[in-house]
Design a protein around this nucleic acid. Structure first.
Lengths: 345, 345
DNA sequence: TTGTAAGCGTTATCAG
DNA sequence: CTGATAACGCTTACAA
């Protein structure tokens, strides 16, 4: 076991000073060709690599991005990470990931842990609980300390920082419009409780689509779910007791549950009911029938977030000139919304 | 914007020395009650937090774990991360994540990036390409430098370090045995190419199960796939041209493709063919029919890996006394393997 | 009880 | 051209 080589050791070995070694390795013109080559050869031979921690301390920059996410076993967040990691790595940054598990306390702890020098800035998608509490002091504090933050997807309007969002409401509207265009007259929505910002926005999009097509809004066709995990029963009961010909859901999980509920009724998707869902992932792609989705382009969102953050870290952007990047959604039509026999219209 | 407070500033402010402040904050008995309280009050008031980077440099410990994974948009790895993160955070460690995207070069780069002081140790699941090349010099180098490594899931036998694996072969064997017990006579396997260590082991388990039940091995019922993404066609062709009553697949994706292929044939799962898959995830849980799986307990594997690494980092374990933790698999029986009408036997 | 100084590994400034 | 020195923020002998 050979411990890591340091400048000091090289200096001692070659009988020069530490600063000479440092300069030689950085190709300073101050150093004679001869010593420079000698030092570089030695360093290469013994595979010298400067110590990141020492550099961080010196430069007061870690070249590390702190990423705080609500969860990770979830296609969307996983793709976001991919996008961030891709850009970050390519620009020489590392990504320090913490999971809040949707808990406010853990989010606060994580941020405190990282804010003390471990990272240069943050990319955050806030926890559900945080949105519910509407307590953002931990975010404000970090911003006040001069660390840039980029919020992704689950953003907080009242914070002054860069944001990356998709047009949740428009995406939802387009999906519902698609159902309407396919002849649906009675379209239900299965969504989350309102304090989840994106759930609310998607619900808004649903309402807008109906309104702009002069379809009366029926509160009885709106199901708001608190907890995804225990939702199948709720969804079954909801759909068994209502007659609908189209269903819009705010995530893939709800969509598959809806299909099951419809099957339970002895009907099927898409023959009797069309289904369109927000969030594209493997589940939608592989389900039978495959589920039509609103693609959120998670990787693109992540990449954009990383770019915004790095721009700020490297000051290539005006101070105080925060932007909100809007990543476009797109519809991916699959079997679940393809009208087969014209049962409607 | 108030930049971070340092010991030096507190010292200047209170007109004492830096070391007095440092000691007071660490409750040293050397410091008088009076000054200690004064300093602590001040620090608390202005929310002083020591700088992690400086601590890291001083202690030559970062309390950071480097995690290098092949991919992340994949339920299994996502659960592994969750498990690691959980344990790490609870023990005061951070997790620095890098993705290799299954590329050897990226894996090497990532490790070099993190090995220069950024982390105290590594948890790694090696890239497919690395397993193919069988080039592990980057891992050996890190080990030689005295940084502990824990390999997870995709391990490398010839490396001397801690490992966390599941009994892939036994899990597969149990699953196939289950199919046999359910009356299957002609069981096909859809697996990966052999250089993927876990694919190979699962294939071995399949073979073992057949052999120990005196079922002749039919090479024609073994399909080895290189690339998951383009596999549907291959699987269709494979299953359309063979008569089988049971299928074992090494991942969820193959299982869903198999179900589709069977449907294409005008048959169905589980009525005509039973399906059992390795790897449990949301896809299996929600698919129709829901897929029976071998649960890998990813979170448990991650947690175990983090524990092993941290033990080593904190020297609570004998040097050179490496262990291979074997996490037990378990079968989760769902619809896809539940015999409905006894078409077989 | 408090303070000084050295050191963690680097780099930058300034002298020699 | 080379080297000593200080500094990044912190801890810890060792002095005072």
């Amino acid at each position: 076991m050979k411990p890591k080589l340091t400048l000091k050791q090289i200096a001692r070995e070659l009988d020069v000073s530490v600063s000479t070694v440092s300069k030689a390795l950085r190709d300073s013109v101050e150093i004679s060709e001869e010593t420079r080559l000698k030092i570089k050869a030695f360093a290469k031979l013994y595979n010298y690599k400067p110590n990141n921690i020492a550099l961080s301390l010196k430069n007061r920059k870690t070249r590390t991005i702190g990423l705080v996410l609500p969860e990770i076993v979830h296609d969307f967040f996983a793709t976001v990470i991919s996008g961030i990691e891709e850009v970050a790595n390519q620009k020489g940054y590392n990504v320090l990931i913490c999971l809040s598990n949707n808990s406010f306390d853990r989010e606060v702890m994580n941020m405190e842990m990282l804010a003390n020098g471990s990272t240069d800035g943050f990319i955050i998608s806030v926890a559900k609980e945080t949105q519910q509490k509407e307590d953002y002091h931990h975010l404000e504090e970090v911003i006040n300390q001069g660390m840039p933050i980029v919020l992704v997807d689950r953003v907080v309007d009242q914070l002054t920082c860069d944001k990356v969002i998709i047009d949740d409401s428009e995406g939802a509207k387009n999906a519902v419009q698609h159902l309407i265009d396919s002849g649906c007259k009675k379209i239900a929505i299965i969504t989350t409780v309102d304090y989840v910002s994106v759930g609310k926005l998607r619900t808004d999009g649903y309402l807008e689509a109906l309104t702009s097509n002069n379809i009366e809004i029926d509160e009885d066709l709106i199901l708001k779910i608190e907890n995804v995990d225990q939702s199948q029963d709720e969804i079954n009961e909801f759909l068994l007791t209502r007659e609908v010909d189209g269903i819009f859901t705010v995530n893939e999980q709800f969509a598959t549950s809806a299909v099951k509920a419809i099957n339970l009724k002895g009907k099927s998707v898409p023959e009797d009911v069309l289904v369109f869902s927000f969030s594209d992932g493997e589940l939608s792609r592989r389900f039978i029938p495959s589920i039509s989705t609103v693609d959120q382009h998670g990787a693109a969102m992540g990449a954009k977030a990383a770019e915004l953050l790095i721009e700020r870290l490297e000051n290539t952007v005006e101070e105080e000139n925060f932007q909100t990047a809007l990543v476009k959604t797109s519809l991916i039509e699959r079997e679940s919304s393809r009208r087969i026999k014209s049962s409607a219209v």
